[in-house]
Design a binder for these strands. Structure first.
Lengths: 211, 211
DNA sequence: CTGGAATGTTCATGCGGTCAACATCGGGCA
DNA sequence: TGCCCGATGTTGACCGCATGAACATTCCAG
């Protein structure tokens, strides 16, 4: 057992998790492209190749970080929705929840740009890393999307809804986040940014309602 | 003059443009991360460092490709809008144009994934490339966005419109494109993809209209 | 106790970005 | 006309990164 014994000298004891933590830190600091195997190893105080005992390579390390980031994103969305006051009218409540989830989504992206970008980085090989030949394995459901879908289904029960509205809503918040983070909408003042966010949310909600 | 004389031996004659062409090809094939200085030079048949006589480094080469890609994107949008039949009702015509522009946008992204991603890649340094210290210079207007804005202004003249609706519309098409390209919406059948696109477009149009 | 399985380390290869020093070419000025 | 300088390429070298092979160190099961 790796138990509480912690770090010996030669054998780290919990290298895998230590590397993940370091990699998540790196992603938080500079996004997925900053997740560099050697740097993670360095931070943990171990030789670069040691990581290969726990990961297939940089790709798998990055995928692990991505999974972590997706969980954090979903948590942020749920927190935002939980803060939202309820409403007597179920239709109104459904709308509010949808908007709150979206706000949580964009808020997470703005507050943790690197992590957010890591959450959706493709497994695309970076230059210097040979491309994988294997077909991409099916990915697990992304909770952030599930939340949006469920929220839209709730709206559904209170009125008409367009099919595929979930993807449309997701497109809007995802695109907005990226434009704010690294696109031409970056360096918007917080005030103007909120305007854009609210306008987009209104679009999402009204777009989901029109049948 | 570099004239028609073309390629001597030692002096290429038009290296800059040849490199740009090669780099655009690379981006078309594999997106911005495939734009590798050494490879571009290789394709042109020149030594890697020769590129430094014409570009500040990989970063500038990539920025040049990005500018090119943005122009191509705008052209695709305008072509799509031009194909759209007019309408007697100016309001209807405006809606149609907006939808057509968006369709052109997403269509370009789907048809030229690499180039599209290159169009919006941040100047973020790739690993192996030291980060630039200089503050990012202001970027020129992006024509794709201008087109959307103008289209929304036209809609405006025929009815109410929310402020910042341009950014909202852009967010939707941009996010949709990325989700289709490298996000969880990739490997959707063409049929389902069209469904999602149309639903998103409906969201954009209806969202722009509600005051 | 002890030997094999785990887990790290060292060494080496190959690719990419970039810089400095050197080679070539071509056109303008004496 | 002829030569020299600046523009344009080339070589060679350095550094970081991803990875794989071979070797070292521990630890635990038998």
């Amino acid at each position: 057992m790796a138990g509480i014994s912690g770090g010996k000298n030669y054998h780290h004891g919990d290298l895998r998790n230590a590397l993940i933590r370091a990699a998540v830190d790196l992603a938080t600091e500079g996004g997925p492209e900053r997740v560099v195997l050697r740097e993670a190893a360095r931070r943990v105080g171990v030789s670069p190749t040691a990581a290969y005992r726990h990961f297939d390579g940089r790709g798998e390390l990055l995928r692990t970080v991505r999974a972590h980031a997706r969980v954090r994103l979903a948590e942020a969305m749920e927190r935002a929705a939980a803060r939202e006051p309820g409403a007597d009218d179920p239709a109104l409540a459904a709308e509010r929840r949808l908007a709150a989830l979206c706000r949580g989504y964009v808020g997470f992206a703005v507050e943790h740009p690197g992590l957010y970008r890591a959450a959706f980085c493709a497994g695309r090989p970076a230059p210097g890393e040979p491309p994988v030949g294997v077909p991409v394995p099916p990915e697990p459901e992304i909770r952030a999307f599930t939340l949006l879908k469920e929220s839209l289904e709730a709206l559904d029960r209170t009125g008409g809804r367009r099919p595929a509205a979930g993807a449309a809503a997701w497109s809007a918040v995802h695109g907005l986040s990226l434009l704010l983070l690294e696109g031409p909408l970056r360096r918007l003042s917080a005030r103007r940014r909120d305007d854009v966010v609210e306008t987009t949310l209104a679009m999402v909600v009204s777009g989901a309602r029109t049948p």
